[in-house]
Design a protein around this nucleic acid. Structure first.
Lengths: 227, 227
DNA sequence: AACGGACAAATTGTATACAAGATTGTTATA
DNA sequence: TATAACAATCTTGTATACAATTTGTCCGTT
């Protein structure tokens, strides 16, 4: 999990900062990202900003219309549903592979992360739960022992972060989430790949009413026909 | 399938051209991509080249080492296996969804594409089969009626293109491929999602000996520990 | 009053100039 | 002869200047 050694490349730092502002909602969907403005705001020239925007566009966070500037990508309900559908399947795949390939130390780490979630739930601390939940899921990605899959899952998870986050405050989502985690852990430890996959699929929000609740809780909309 | 209206953005054209040269092997894995050299070669300045390289790096085709230039990404055996493993699952998901959601006109198009493959096989024309096979697969992606999934599958498919291409010349792969297609079409038309998924999983090369053959047939190697 | 065209302002895309770090080759010394 | 340090050169990263296209406004005409 170490990744600090390349200091150069301002454009990357810019990219990280802009991305942070996008996923935290400081730059809301649809907002125009003026190159000159961003440049003066960050105290750099347009060049690193442009390069950062191109990267973010490749990642799908912003949309660059030729000669017409960049805007924060608007994800419509429909496309959001599609992305969660894919996310569910990617995570399910991670779970299936993890059940077959997880090592003993990874098992211990997973159980520990699960217990950490339990503590956060008991303390009724959504922020803590959110972070520990992220760790829990990431441990499953890593336990798949497919680095490429892990990367893909992490990237998509990150992209869905702002939408997922709000969802934790809805209803008794924390409690539900935790008990679902329990089932997932059990299946993985039992090396039952198919059951792990099935339970993860259910866990990810795509299912029926739960997704509708998510949609309803989102302040940012975006027209459904954007996809 | 129309996408021609934005003429501006040289960097995109450069990106497409460089990408083409990468996937066709003109720029082999590991090759150094000198910005100045490329710029003068394409008759443009370094700026569009740089932007193109950044995009290609985001897509995973090139690797940019800060202050040390860009090289064509080397995909080691291990990572290649991982990518095919994910590809298989993505395609399987497409098939499962397609079985449930495919429209009648899409069914006709799929059958037509399948028959076109048959003709190419009978003519023993690998190049034609290659193209029609691509179309066949893409139709399944589209029939999933999940645009995001379709995009992801298409992107990964494209990235694996150079490796897949060589594979068609191996053995009697064309004949095998076609008969597997038949089973896939049947499952989708029968709306049997699980069977379609299973057959597609088998169809994609990851399975045992077949993947070993693929590896053996690849001139470009890349160290296995790159992942 | 509304529509259309032309001009003006602003913003993106590209080229070039400059700065900073990396690589390579040379030289001196052990 | 080999190694280490230094210098020269080359390449990338950033800033700025310029070109081209879009957008908005104003005025004229119908």
């Amino acid at each position: 999990m170490e990744k600090k050694q390349r200091m150069s490349r301002r454009s990357e730092q810019m990219g990280d900062q802009i991305e942070e502002r996008i996923v935290t909602g400081v730059y809301p969907p649809g907002m125009r990202l003026d190159e000159t403005e961003l440049a003066s705001g960050f105290g750099v020239s347009r060049t690193p900003i442009r390069e950062a925007l191109i990267q973010l566009a490749s990642a799908g966070l912003v949309e660059i219309r030729p000669r017409r500037g960049a805007i924060v990508a608007e994800i419509g309900q429909h496309r959001l549903y599609e992305m969660f559908e894919v996310m569910a399947e990617l995570e399910a795949m991670c779970g299936r592979l993890a059940a077959r390939r997880i090592t003993e130390s990874e098992q211990r780490a997973l159980v520990a992360a699960h217990q950490a979630c339990e503590a956060a739930r008991d303390a009724n601390d959504p922020d803590a739960y959110y972070q520990r939940n992220e760790r829990f899921h990431h441990l499953i990605y890593a336990a798949s022992h497919n680095v490429f899959l892990e990367e893909q899952a992490t990237a998509l998870h990150r992209r869905l972060r702002p939408y997922r986050r709000l969802q934790l405050r809805v209803r008794d989502r924390m409690g539900t989430s935790f008990s679902e985690h329990a089932g997932i852990v059990e299946a993985i430890l039992a090396q039952d790949g198919e059951q792990a996959a099935a339970r993860i699929r259910t866990h990810v929000v795509v299912q029926g009413q739960r997704f509708a609740d998510l949609i309803a809780s989102l302040p940012m909309l975006g027209s459904p026909s954007l996809a």
